[in-house]
Design a protein around this nucleic acid. Structure first.
Lengths: 237, 237
DNA sequence: TTTTGTAACCAATATGGTATTGGTTAAGCC
DNA sequence: GGCTTAACCAATACCATATTGGTTACAAAA
């Protein structure tokens, strides 16, 4: 312990005393469940050390990974700041439609495979109902809504809320990145639109518990969607 | 159009006029890029209709999916409210360690495959440096920090910010779910810890552009980690 | 001179009061 | 009955203020 302190370049003796007091304070606080410790200005007075020494001790513990600090929030025990929320626009701002499509191509077939393994009968029934609704859609907007629902139902059928959450994130990023890209309003999807057959193949494979078939069908479907999307993207540049 | 209005149960004639005026307003606003429309109290006066009629017309457009509203925020044109942030705790609260592990097994091998395809030389150099640091870690805490860094470097090497973002979400969920589970403090990772060899195989496969090898090595590594984690989980129940 | 303690300041965040907004209800008026 | 208006509610936005970790300057002490 003493060697550690020496090696850490902690100035004089006062710094050492502050570190010992702090470690005692942490040990006492560890079994209370509370993770946030008092403000530096209070703590240094409470421990009877100067704020500079306290900060040196805190820096040691932070480098060791026992605490983490952030301006305006405070000092906390734990390995690091657990991000409580992820900003969709932060992801969407640093990417492009091609990367989104590639991510979908990587994630969604595996989700479909998992769905084929865990889908319940009611899951499958709900998907089949969505299949009918996609064909009945009167406008492109309605079609997109039902299409979104169907893909999410597949993710939900994986019965894995982590996968479902990741799908939701990916979906939100996609809607942010591609927002306002295709504006082919007015018409409705043609009756021979490739997605109809694609969707049916996916749902059928899931219903038959064909893991590889579901993944392959989803991959094929996304590749078809990608082919229709890339030309628009290149034409815009 | 007129039939639509009739079928939508929009009371008397005043409601129809409000709908027409609103549609005109939307069309005029559509090509300005602005998505938020004025507050109801202003808009109803601007259009010269009562607030009740305006709200009926807004309800029709909302049911049609052309606008969406939220208390305190306003009314916006578009299919739906794009979730700007995803709460990690929302996902973590509805799941369990097993699902997190399964999601990692599905996602991370594919990320490793992508990394083998797109990693730059500096990416690989950084990974190798992390490999050394994992062996030098003096405590389990330090080891975990470097291990986290290495896995994130692999995701970063995919050169796909969407995949990187999804990895960050998954990682945050994992750290929330497993928080405080393993408390084997004090010791340091043994020299023959399986992860050392696992990590080296993964990085080597990426460096050699062996797509399948990278994915397989990552899958094997995570399966090993899972085997060490499940017993702890079952023992707790 | 070097080190330590103190105070002051900065940028980021938290906090609380106020204003705004969609949603709802009730009364008055055709 | 329908229609209008007004008032109220809960959720959100907005803004000023307080708090916090991070930094610097300067005097006191060694």
């Amino acid at each position: 312990m003493r060697e550690l302190v020496k090696s850490m370049d902690v100035g004089g003796n006062g710094g050492h005393a502050a570190l010992v007091q702090l470690q005692a304070y942490l040990a006492q606080m560890d079994h209370t469940g509370e993770t946030r410790l008092p403000a530096e200005r209070e703590l240094c007075e409470s421990l009877g050390v100067s704020r500079g020494d306290l900060r040196k001790a805190l820096a040691v513990l932070e480098k060791d990974g026992r605490i983490w600090r952030h301006v305006g929030k405070g000092t906390f025990v734990g390995s690091g700041p657990i991000e409580e929320t992820i900003g969709i626009s932060e992801i969407a701002g640093r990417t492009n439609p091609a990367d989104v499509m590639r991510a979908r191509l990587i994630i969604e077939p595996e989700i479909a495979r998992e769905a084929a393994l865990h889908a319940t009968l009611s899951d499958i029934a709900a998907m089949r109902q969505s299949l009918v609704q996609t064909r009945e859609a009167a406008t492109w907007r309605q079609y997109e809504n039902v299409d979104n629902l169907l893909h999410r139902q597949i993710a939900q059928a994986s019965r894995n809320n982590v996968l479902l959450g990741l799908f939701d994130v990916l979906n939100a990023v996609r809607r942010t990145v591609v927002w306002g890209r295709l504006r082919s309003e007015g018409a409705r999807p043609p009756a021979d639109h490739h997605s109809f057959a694609d969707h049916e193949r996916i749902v059928e494979a899931i219903a038959e518990r064909d893991l590889g078939g579901a993944a392959a069908a989803m991959r094929l479907h996304l590749q078809q969607v990608g082919r229709r999307l890339i030309p628009l993207h290149e034409a815009a540049e």
